[in-house]
Design a protein around this nucleic acid. Sequence first.
DNA 1: TGTGCCCATACGTTTCAGGCATGGACGTCG
DNA 2: CGACGTCCATGCCTGAAACGTATGGGCACA
Lengths: 300, 300
Amino acid sequence: MDVDTRVLRYFVAVAECLSFTEAANRLYVAQPSLSRQIKQLEARLGTDLFVRASSAITLTRAGEALLDAARQQLSGWQHTLRLVRTAAAAESNVVRVGFVATGGGALARQARAVFTERYPDATIAPKRFDWGGEAQALRDGLADIAFVWLPADLTGLRSRVVADEQRWVAMRSSHPLARQDKIRIDDLRDEPLMWTRVASPEWVDWWAVNPRPDGSTAVWGRENDNVEEMLEHVATATSGVCIGPESMASYYTHPDLTWRPLVDVDPLRIALAWPEDSASPLVARFAEIASALADQPSPD
Amino acid sequence: MDVDTRVLRYFVAVAECLSFTEAANRLYVAQPSLSRQIKQLEARLGTDLFVRASSAITLTRAGEALLDAARQQLSGWQHTLRLVRTAAAAESNVVRVGFVATGGGALARQARAVFTERYPDATIAPKRFDWGGEAQALRDGLADIAFVWLPADLTGLRSRVVADEQRWVAMRSSHPLARQDKIRIDDLRDEPLMWTRVASPEWVDWWAVNPRPDGSTAVWGRENDNVEEMLEHVATATSGVCIGPESMASYYTHPDLTWRPLVDVDPLRIALAWPEDSASPLVARFAEIASALADQPSPD
DNA sequence: TGTGCCCATACGTTTCAGGCATGGACGTCG
DNA sequence: CGACGTCCATGCCTGAAACGTATGGGCACA
């Protein structure tokens, strides 16, 4: 009997929600469609998966068995996807270097230059991801190695910290704070801070410096997925600022924006990370080069 | 990205044949359809899986990675199917007893009677399969326990031999051999023997008594999938006989058929078998009952 | 008893897999 | 060297299936 990962996803969603309606919302499909898919799955399996009692549905034994197995099938397929994508890149001697915004900054560019000179047959493919997406991209096989902004979930990855950068603040040039040479976190007490749903809460709180030294927490501004959207918000919204690493101030200049150093917070730490089971020698070489550069005194 | 076990089967077939045309035949689909499915899979994965060179196709690295993983996915799904079906039967206290033709004969009926008396809340569901299908049915989760005719592939199963039966020969009543009280294998030297594609070659050869004591091999008659088809062939074909266990002579009487004992060949051995990882206590109880009955002197 | 929630069903639409026919590239053989 | 066979790709049509909207029915709760 054939089956689709889609219906397995549908089934897992219903089993987790124990509600067709709620699962349909989560899956962005109409509820009748979901009902039909589950019913068809039950018909093909020859057994009910849910007990539809009034105002509550529960899993049958067969449903419980399928829930475990379906989760394994789905994660197995994710793993397969990663292997295939990685193999495809490796075959064509491509190293996909994941990053967010300015990523690894100057170190990344130096590493790329050395790598390209040493392995002229290989190609570096920079891959930009949305906030907090670079670590997951490694697990999904969408990148072979990445400059990961900490904090991040490094499960399944090998990593080493290769750089750090002071944090700066961006604001509209007309903003009162733009008259200061440097910013302290207390200055941002009432400033709406741009934030994102696509990264983890830990990531968002770290950037927002939550909790603040005085025990307060950030005021949230506009939501965004990546650096361009974030800066667009800051440049156009009536209020609000954003925080980024120092390199962002030079990489993303903007006529309406002013960058100022945020002097009393921890710097951003940047890790180079790659999958634990990475078998690509080119990835290992790139990691060695970047590590060696990180150990040298910075030429800046 | 979603995927279907069907396209994984398609991919594995092409990868194993290294030919679209041959794989299409094996899969019983038209070659253009197969080409399109593979091409679409490649597009969704974002990488080629095959190198289409003139007069030979080969796997890319990504294809090799997918081949391994797809085989695992497919066998994983088979395993899942078994778990779900088994759980469904266990939930409703049903023990599905697999068999072929007369299956375990008198012993099976006795076991069922004892089991039903001892566990009145449970239900025995006899499940008949085509030639040689009962062991695979256990692995596929289509039966919980089965009377398996040996020889059979018992991989993944626990088993014990519980009965044996002399083999008999069925022929048209007008057949010259029907005048004999008993048949010897040499008498069948030139008789076309009914056979099947659905069981393993070892199974077919064992029933055909290949090779014969004189070194010859059977002459093949009509092909069939199960006992009714087989007997229909014997009753209507101009020539040919079939061999079955003694119980078949009493279970499948037929006005045009005559059964005679085949006196100089090994008897059929019947094993009771169930999955190694069977967790159902009812299955264990059934196995104990049948085993105990097998150890008693036969009441026949 | 009316209302809201939740799941199932009906129906029309779109998408997609499959079959048939055909085209193009390449190798082989007369 | 040309005709033919083999093999994979493409075009076109058909049938099946999935999705969405609208609607019906059962149950809880007010």
